[in-house]
């Protein structure tokens, strides 16, 4: 993905101080960054704030970016780290009740399993939510996720297995399994 010449040019121009070039990077990756931050924080507005901060952090630290790496993965690593820090601060402030729901009403209406899945994910740790998002929504491998989150592959595998077990033990999936068995 980072092999696209225009992306390399955007990065170079951003390094030279051209904010419009950086805006091109923002437009390309805003959806994945916002989605990851929302999933980890469990909040739409908190996720947007975190993703915004992640882009600004990336702009400031762009000179540290290794062009051999994938910019998207580098950005998501920053996003995940900021989102986890955000949760720690939010927990200390004990303002979780102010968190706005992730799913919109129409999504609940369309498929109640999505609402159940969202609820089930809330019980997971921030790291587990990050791993699920990177694997199932962004298609990253265990190895890639370990690099992005700067944790060991064994830790990714363990947390992924734990998160999957938690979600698949949800009554929703238990019912589906019983139907399949009968």
């Amino acid at each position: 993905m980072n092999d696209e010449p225009d992306e390399k040019e955007w990065i170079q121009r951003s390094l030279e101080g051209d904010p419009s070039a950086f805006s091109c990077l923002v437009l390309r990756y805003q959806d994945v960054a916002v989605n990851l931050a929302r999933r980890i924080t469990g909040s739409r507005t908190d996720g947007e704030d975190v993703a915004q901060e992640a882009f600004i952090r990336a702009y400031r630290k762009l000179h540290q970016f290794d062009p051999v790496r994938e910019f998207r993965a580098w950005l998501l690593g920053i996003t995940a780290n900021l989102a986890k820090n955000h949760i720690r601060r939010r927990t200390r402030r004990e303002d979780r009740e102010q968190v706005d729901p992730l799913l919109q009403e129409e999504q609940h209406d369309r498929d109640p399993r999505l609402a159940a899945l969202t609820d089930a994910m809330e019980a997971l740790s921030a790291s587990e939510r990050a791993i699920l998002t990177l694997k199932y929504m962004e298609g990253y491998s265990v190895n890639d996720i370990a690099t992005i989150l700067k944790i060991r592959q064994s830790a990714v595998k363990m947390r992924l297995a734990r998160a999957r077990e938690h979600l698949l033990n949800h009554p929703l999936f238990q019912e589906e399994n019983s139907y399949e068995r009968s």
Partner: peptide, 13 residues
């Protein structure tokens, strides 16, 4: 089943 459902939770900026 997560391969089908989780991608559907994706939201845009």
């Amino acid at each position: 089943p997560l391969e089908d459902l989780l991608p559907r939770l994706k939201e845009s900026a």
